[in-house]
Design a protein around this nucleic acid. Structure first.
Length: 820
RNA sequence: GCCGAGGUGGCGGAAUGGUAGACGCGAUGGUCUCAAAAACCAUUGGGCCAAAAGCCCGUGCCGGUUCGAGUCCGGCCCUCGGUACCA
């Protein structure tokens, strides 16, 4: 038994600041573009400057740092940058609540967060850091806007906003609460919020809908790809026009989109979205009051509530009719809030027999429910519920007898001949609305001139600076609108007095191209040097929360494709590989100041050091699943690091010691750790290193060890642990007399033959139930295993009086007697 | 509502269709100590049993496939994330 009492104690409070300083002096993580090693761009989603850094930031970044460090040890030139997402609503809210300025609040947060981030000991290249609210940064955000406008990908269109009549201002969805009647109310003044249409800037994301469905160049988790595909929501179907027989509001027809044109002959009514432009003009005087009341209430509901299938299907009749395109029959025109203007054409045909929603709607209102697709066992009578399955068309004129699938195309093509529709594809995806009526954002670089119309700000005049002295408090006007100095400008084309756009950009606009800037962050002439772009892009590995599965990640993909087509970048996808970590909670809930369950990393670093905190975060569960922070759990990691410390520094007895068991433990660990790093399984990676530690300790305590094997074992353990516990391993590496930094070493090599166990456990089952365990040499034959098994009393008892019908043999694993 | 993920001991979790509970926390007992803390050692899914051996039960619920299911299939329940102006 080795005594450890005289060993120096593991003291992270001294070790950690020391090595962080040394690494900074040595420029260990500063990336050299001319480094001959292969470039590897590792990026974790940039944090929002929300105030204190909480353990959630560590949870996103510490494991990313481990993976980045591992890439470095594998011989890559790793770029691992960091920056801050700094514009947005929370800064404005916080400024109002704390009676300060959003800029002041944001930059003091950045200072604080930077200090806190540095204690983590991450291998960030801080020389490339920026905040998206830096004028030198948002100059390029504005530049992107100009490029998109130039290429027809940015346009003005009408879009709905949440409008609070009390504050006379636009609200974010987050600022809208629900009252008991289901109406949206302003979270500040509690007025009922209305939908109001405003002309705003949009980006044409739908232009890339089909290309964005393709993930050939994306190594993404399957669920993320699925969610994005569903977000795009491509569906093939038909457009069908129902003639009105007269002109109403400049239209002589109402067009619907359907994926089921085969059921057209079963259409007995149609439904318009309450916002549909023809509603007011179609409605007859008798029904006008009811329709207006209905439309009014619909404007106060949000889309999620309107689409709920649990809710009763409300709706009102307009009194108007359209004609069935084939039969000429009258089709009642209704208005109902479950139809959304934003999807398809804002109007749907009602086929009650073959759509669940339409069935419920028609049944309550006594609308006929004719069957036009025959269920297999149909007796010709009425249906008790909607039939949505396959079948042959019936009651459908010349299409009778056609299979439904063929019918979809046949009906669409027949409509095309009549010029009343035809085959088409519809998407759930909408264009991206980027205008925000807020102060703390990048100004949209556009000018409105009475003579010239919409005029872009010339590139040379960027950035359009956000004035510090605008009134951002809610006063009833868009903040920049009241800032005369900002608003009034000479038209760049004609020189006459003109007005600047006063809306700012969605913060997602700032965060969907930031990764490119890290490659060349101080370039004043261009967004990015083309040679450097070629060298570093796309990002090799991106990590971040799955809550960004569709919006941020999707916008970033759209931007990459637009950038390629505009000749700015030569990549198809921004991120070659993606990994999503889960959320860290405390007491089962997401951390929030109001709940009072925020875990402050500083407190735990002060107690145990950063290395222990890093390890605990990785150990508490699989990274993709997230986990719950438990104050008492962290002590396990602290104890383990102390055991590693003592193990590495302890004197061992080497006279006549053996090497096999040591090598087995070492190589089993290297294999497992390497394999787990590949798939970001940090929790089992740490468990493997703990097992190895336990094993080495036991071997040492049993007696002598082989000196070379022991030294290899300790070195390998330190190398495997180096990415996770960078400070402690550096200290031990140097104390053990090694040259250079542990973080500049090569990853240890794994030899499978050395990891091989001497014996294997083969389990014996009778009818699938475990009855015996055999210890055999690896590669033992089935007959050897069977005779050993039959020699067991337990097995013999279970087989007594039974006939063995079958024997299942899995070499080195299992022997199962199937008997009765 | 819709889309995606998940549900395993007291707790966090482990398990290419093949020993359920690795690794750790906690708890209990012990060593050390005047004592405590720390550290170390041992035990720890439930039941029958004095104990051991042994047997039975056990991965949200119901059913199925298979020699064998936490894992695959069908149907439910619950929790979490997103739902286009929180980021």
């Amino acid at each position: 038994m080795t005594t450890t009492t005289q060993l120096p104690p593991y003291d992270p409070a001294t070790i950690e600041p020391h090595w962080r300083r040394q690494w900074e002096i040595d420029g260990l993580y500063q990336v050299d573009n001319d480094d001959p090693r292969p470039p590897y761009f590792f990026l974790t989603m940039l944090p929002y400057t929300s105030g204190d850094l909480h353990i959630g930031h560590w949870y996103a970044m510490a494991p990313s740092d481990v993976a980045a460090r591992w890439q470095r040890m594998q011989g890559n030139n790793v770029l691992f940058p960091v920056g801050f997402d700094a514009f947005g609503l929370p800064a404005e809210n916080a400024a109002i609540n704390h009676n300060t300025h959003p800029k002041k609040w944001t930059y003091s947060n950045i200072e604080n967060m930077t200090r806190q981030l540095k204690t983590m000991g991450a291998s960030f290249d801080w020389t490339r850091e920026f905040a998206t609210s830096d004028p030198e940064y948002y100059r390029w955000t504005q530049w992107w806007f100009l490029k998109l406008y130039e290429h027809g990908l940015a346009y003005r269109g009408l879009a709905d906003c949440n409008f609070c009549p009390g504050c006379n201002t636009v609200l974010a969805n987050e600022q809208v609460n629900r009252n008991d009647d289901g109406n949206g109310v302003c979270d500040r003044c509690e007025s009922i919020v209305e939908a109001r249409q405003m002309e705003q800037w949009m980006f044409r994301t739908t232009a890339y809908a089909d290309e964005l469905l393709n993930f050939d160049r994306c190594d993404y988790p399957e669920p993320i790809k699925l969610m994005q595909r569903n977000w795009i929501g491509r569906s093939e179907g038909a457009e069908i026009s129902f003639p009105l027989g007269r002109e109403v509001g400049g239209e002589d027809r109402i067009t619907v989109f359907t994926t089921r044109p085969d059921t057209l002959f079963g259409c007995t009514f149609m439904v318009l979205a309450p916002e549909h432009p023809l509603v007011a003009e179609l409605t007859t005087d008798v029904h006008r009051a009811a329709v207006e009341t209905y439309v009014e209430q619909a404007r106060r509901q949000n889309e999620i509530e309107r689409q709920s299938t649990k809710r009763e299907k409300t709706g009102v009749f307009t009194g108007a009719y359209a004609k069935h395109p084939f039969t000429g029959d009258d089709i009642q025109i209704w208005v109902a809030d479950y139809v959304l203007l934003s999807y398809g054409t804002g109007a749907v045909m009602g086929v009650p027999a073959h759509d669940e929603r339409d069935f419920a709607f028609a049944q309550e209102r006594g609308i006929p429910i004719p069957v036009v697709i025959a269920p297999a066992d149909w007796d010709g009578g009425d249906l008790s519920e909607a039939y949505t399955g396959p079948g042959k068309m019936v009651n459908s004129g010349r299409f009778d007898g056609t299979d439904w699938q063929d019918g979809k195309l046949a009906v669409a093509d027949a409509l095309a001949e009549l010029q009343l529709g035809g085959r088409t594809v519809s998407y759930r995806l909408r264009d991206w609305l980027i205008s925000r009526q807020r102060y703390w954002g990048a100004p949209i670089p556009m000018i409105f001139c009475e003579a010239c119309g919409i005029v872009p700000v010339p590139e040379a005049e960027l950035p359009v600076l956000l004035p510090d002295d605008a009134e951002f408090l809610p006063t009833g006007a868009s903040p920049l609108e009241r800032h005369d100095e900002f608003v009034n400008v000479d038209c760049p084309q004609c020189g006459e007095a003109a007005r600047r756009e006063t809306d700012t950009m969605d913060t997602f606009m700032c965060s969907n191209w930031y990764m490119y800037r890290y490659v060349d962050p101080h370039n004043h002439q261009a967004l990015i040097d083309p040679g450097l772009a070629q060298q570093w892009l796309p990002i090799d590995q991106y990590t971040g929360g799955a809550e960004h599965a569709v919006m941020h990640l999707f916008y970033a993909r759209f931007f990459a494709k637009a950038a390629r087509d505009m000749g700015i970048l030569q990549i198809d996808e921004p991120f070659a590989r993606l990994f999503n970590q889960g959320t860290i909670t405390k007491d089962g809930f997401k951390m929030s100041k109001s709940r009072g369950n925020v875990v402050n990393p500083d407190e735990w670093v002060a107690r145990y050091g950063a290395d222990t905190v890093r390890l605990y975060l990785m150990f508490l569960g699989p990274w993709e699943a997230g986990g719950d922070w438990d104050d008492s759990g962290i002590s396990g990691q602290w104890r383990w690091l102390n055991r590693v410390w003592n193990l590495a520094l302890s004197e061992v007895e080497t006279a006549g010691g053996s090497a096999d068991a040591i090598r087995r433990a070492t190589h089993a660990m290297i294999g497992k750790v390497t394999q787990d790093l590949e798939r970001f399984r940090f929790n089992t990676m740490i468990a493997a290193m703990m097992e190895c530690t336990n094993e080495l300790q036991a071997i040492r305590d049993r007696g002598s060890v082989d000196e070379t094997a022991w030294r290899e074992a300790i070195d390998s353990l330190l190398l495997c642990l180096a990415p996770s516990a960078p400070h402690m391993t550096e200290e031990l590496w140097r104390r053990l007399g090694n040259d250079g930094s542990v973080h500049e070493q090569s990853w240890p090599t794994y030899d499978e033959s050395l990891a091989q166990a001497e014996t294997v456990t083969v389990v014996v089952q009778v009818n699938g139930k475990l009855r015996e365990k055999l210890t055999l040499a690896p590669g033992a034959s089935q007959s050897d295993a069977a005779s050993a098994a039959r020699a067991s009393e337990r097995v013999a008892d279970q087989l007594a009086g039974k006939t063995v019908r079958r024997v299942v043999w899995v070499p080195d694993k299992l022997l199962n007697f199937v008997a009765n």
